[in-house]
Amino acid sequence: MRDCYFFTEKMCVGHGSPIIKDIEIMLPKGEILTLIGANGAGKSTVLKSIAGQLRLLGGTIYLEKETLSEMDRKALARKMSVVFTERLKTELMTCEDVVATGRYPYTGRFGRLSEEDRQIVREAMDLIRVTEIRDTDFRKISDGQRQRVMLARAICQEPEILILDEPISYLDIRHKLEFLSVLQEMREKKQLTVLMSMHELELAKIISDKILCLKGEYVLRYGTPEEIFESDFIEQLFDITEERFASNEKFLTYIRKVGRYG
């Protein structure tokens, strides 16, 4: 277990008072973990605690055998990047400027970008396909575009581990697939490790190596997609009862499709 790239030991998270206790995650380098659960189940709280936004209420997080909370902040910034659901505050910044903020841990005292930094920014924007809005004001683009710019920003930070809170929630289906395939590619080429939360169950099943299900005070289940998407577990996780939709044949069919087989 201690050989794992990323793992947590009895991690306990919450805003002041504990919401979820004894979270034990083990993630080898280059794997993708997805958190699923109902609204308010604590997915963001877990991700924010891992990213160091929230103080841990108990337990320890290890990254490459080092305790995360004791790691040097600047060294960590070169290893871990994040995309939260919370909006970035910008003023008079173009999308390219926003993406370039990901280079912060690599620039000098005054934060001037080198030619190499610029190159990396351009590549990240190409990869996520936001190059055409590079000179547009970040406040004037749509939610979906904004989400993609934020993803490009996280990628140009050149992380080893990426923390994403509902990264594709605003994207159309094409961009959802495109982004997930970028993740998959980066995981194969660069051994990128990903921890994210998602509501798109079908996609979570395809992309993830591990899935963590949150419900109530403890982790409800942790395992491979095959283990999670079996029998009626999803219905249990989201409290979907067939009786509630009994009168609607179309809904019933859908529930059976998603719930049972992802």
Partner: peptide, 23 residues
């Protein structure tokens, strides 16, 4: 003036500033 780099990160919001290594 020497704080201009961390200030630029702080403008994005505290959580992102924290993530890119600002105290």
């Amino acid at each position: 003036f020497f704080l201009s780099k961390p200030i630029s990160a702080y403008q994005l919001g505290e959580s992102y500033a924290e993530n890119i290594g600002v105290d």
